[in-house]
Deep mutational scan, measured.
Amino acid sequence: ESFERTINIAKGNSSLGMTVSANKDGLGMIVRSIIHGGAISRDGRIAIGDCILSINEESTISVTNAQARAMLRRHSLIGPDIKITYVP
């Protein structure tokens, strides 16, 4: 059984350190890789294959690959914290 989780990740000045791609069925974006030493890796809660539904409350539903990457990059630049809703 999968259910949504919303977490805050304190990334400070470091990068999030993950790559994503659009989910084929349009439901959010899938975590493709996690870079060791990045904020996601240090936090430890998000794993490869998890589905991200929103970043800082901006929905990732029906985004393209390019939009998913641009959204991740944009939110990575805002502030020291990032809020991610995902399904493990």
Rank of each mutant, 00 (worst) to 15 (best):
Q67N: 07
E4V: 09
A66C: 09
R73L: 11
R45Q: 03
S41F: 12
R74D: 08
D50K: 00
M29W: 06
N56V: 00
V63W: 10
A47C: 12
P80K: 15
L53Q: 07
D25A: 12
S33T: 13
S15N: 14
R45M: 00
V63M: 15
A22W: 05
A39S: 06
T6M: 05
C51L: 13
T6D: 04
K11Y: 07
E4H: 11
T6H: 06
N56P: 02
A70I: 10
M71V: 13
V63H: 06
N56F: 00
A47Q: 14
I61H: 15
P88D: 04
N65S: 11
S14W: 10
S54A: 15
S41Q: 14
R45G: 03
N56G: 11
M71G: 02
T60Q: 03
D81C: 09
H75G: 09
S41T: 03
G26C: 06
S76H: 08
I7P: 02
L77P: 07
S2Y: 15
V87K: 09
H75W: 10
E57V: 01
T60R: 01
G28M: 01
A47H: 15
I48C: 10
T85S: 11
A22V: 11
R42T: 10
E1M: 13
K83I: 05
S59D: 07
V20Y: 04
L53N: 07
K24Y: 08
N8C: 13
K24H: 11
D81W: 10
G12S: 08
I7C: 04
N13Y: 11
V31P: 02
A68I: 09
S76N: 10
N65F: 04
E4I: 12
I84F: 11
D50H: 00
R69F: 09
P88S: 11
N56R: 02
V31M: 02
I35L: 10
G12E: 09
I78R: 14
I84E: 02
F3G: 10
E58D: 09
D50C: 01
P80C: 11
D25P: 08
H75K: 07
T6F: 04
E57N: 15
M71N: 04
T64M: 02
E4S: 15
I30C: 09
G17F: 00
D25C: 09
K11I: 12
E58N: 06
M29D: 00
I48S: 07
P88W: 02
E4L: 10
G37P: 07
R32Y: 03
V20G: 04
V63L: 12
G38Q: 10
M29T: 06
I9N: 00
R32E: 15
L77A: 15
G79D: 06
G38T: 03
G44Y: 00
I9K: 01
I30F: 06
A10T: 14
I82D: 04
G44I: 00
E58L: 04
I52E: 03
V31K: 04
R74T: 08
I78Q: 14
N23H: 14
M71A: 09
M71K: 05
R5E: 07
S62H: 14
G26L: 02
S21H: 10
G26E: 06
S21D: 12
R73I: 11
F3P: 09
A22F: 03
S2C: 11
R73P: 04
I55G: 01
S33V: 01
V31Q: 03
R32C: 12
G37H: 06
I34N: 03
K24A: 12
V87H: 08
K11N: 12
T19W: 06
E1Y: 11
T19G: 09
G79M: 06
I78L: 15
S62F: 10
A70W: 07
A10W: 12
S54Y: 09
D25G: 11
A66L: 08
G44H: 04
M18H: 01
G49H: 04
M18Q: 00
R5K: 14
E1I: 14
A47I: 05
S15A: 14
T85A: 07
R73N: 15
H36A: 15
A68L: 06
G38H: 07
G44E: 03
I61P: 04
I40A: 06
E57P: 00
N23A: 14
D81H: 11
D50G: 02
I82L: 12
I78T: 15
I35Q: 12
S59M: 05
V63F: 07
D50R: 00
I82H: 04
C51S: 11
T85Y: 02
I55K: 03
C51W: 05
R69Q: 14
R73Q: 13
N13M: 09
S54F: 09
I7G: 02
I46E: 00
G17V: 00
A70F: 06
S33W: 04
S14F: 12
I46M: 08
T6N: 06
E57A: 09
R69L: 09
I55W: 00
E58M: 06
K11D: 04
R45C: 02
I34E: 02
S76D: 15
S62Y: 11
I84T: 03
S62K: 14
I34M: 06
S2K: 11
I61A: 14
I61L: 15
I52S: 01
A66K: 13
R42E: 10
L27F: 13
S41K: 09
D81R: 07
R45A: 01
M71H: 05
A39W: 04
G17M: 02
D43H: 02
Y86D: 03
I78S: 15
R74G: 06
T60P: 04
R74Q: 07
S76W: 15
